[in-house]
């Protein structure tokens, strides 16, 4: 990290900032990563709530199923998922790029654990007062697990931001490239000797990484 900072200088930083394809890529990434973070965290929260506080028929099976899907290496799912995307005509759409990331099994399990610690009595009280499940979840449960939610959101954002394999496969238009794809392209050009401007490369990598790190600043436990 320090080596990188040493190599980058103002000129390099300026070049990256002025590069319109970089700006496009950053905006793309912000959009994709934010949406993925928000939706996946909410979905995981709902899933965790369902699993932790409702003993429904087949619950254990669903749990094992969730754990099982975590076992599947992404590389195996890719052909099938790609086929799904092609068949639904969603190739080269941003929606398809984030879709798999919206369903975070790890997040659900984490939320499940966090929600399990919420005392049942508060839930019962709320239900007796006539709240439907949605309100119980949003008004009672979620406030109690803010640290976990924040952590998950940041992680989800980072995962979406750094994702390379799936977006490279799904997104074809240059205008839709993500920041990670853009940086990988720079690295590729650099390694083939086409690009020897080290300050540009260093600046590119730094600037591409920084939004994620900045977001980490938001991660506090004292909301």
């Amino acid at each position: 990290m320090l080596w990188l900072i040493g190599r980058a200088d103002i000129a390099g930083l300026k070049r990256v900032l002025l590069d319109s394809s970089w700006r496009d890529a950053i905006v793309n990434s912000i959009f994709l990563a934010s949406i993925q973070a928000v939706v996946s965290t909410l979905l995981a929260g709902m899933m965790g709530f369902a699993m932790a506080k409702h003993d429904f028929f087949g619950r254990k099976i669903v749990l094992m199923g969730l754990v099982f899907t975590m076992l599947v290496p992404a590389q195996l799912l890719m052909p099938g998922a790609f086929e799904m995307v092609m068949k639904t005509g969603l190739f080269d759409t941003r929606l398809a790029a984030i879709f798999p990331g919206l369903f975070s099994v790890f997040g659900s399990l984490l939320m499940m654990q966090a929600i399990a610690r919420v005392p049942d009595e508060t839930l019962h009280a709320a239900r007796l007062d006539g709240c439907n499940e949605l309100r119980v979840w949003w008004d009672i449960v979620m406030p109690q697990i803010i640290p976990t939610t924040t952590t998950l959101a940041v992680l989800s954002f980072a995962a979406a931001w750094n994702a390379l394999l799936w977006p490279s496969l799904i997104l074809a238009s240059e205008s839709k490239a993500t920041a990670a794809m853009w940086a990988a392209n720079v690295a590729f050009n650099a390694s083939s000797g086409e690009l020897s401007d080290t300050s540009f490369i260093a600046a590119a990598v730094l600037l591409t990484m920084s939004p994620v790190l900045l977001l980490g600043l938001l991660h506090t436990n004292d909301d």
Binding site: L43, M46, M47, F49, A50, H54, F56, V62, G65, L66, F103, V105, S108, N132, E133, L134, W137
Partner: peptide, 10 residues
Amino acid sequence: FVFLPVVLFG
């Protein structure tokens, strides 16, 4: 509300 996420994931 409980089943929705389960079904979606599935």
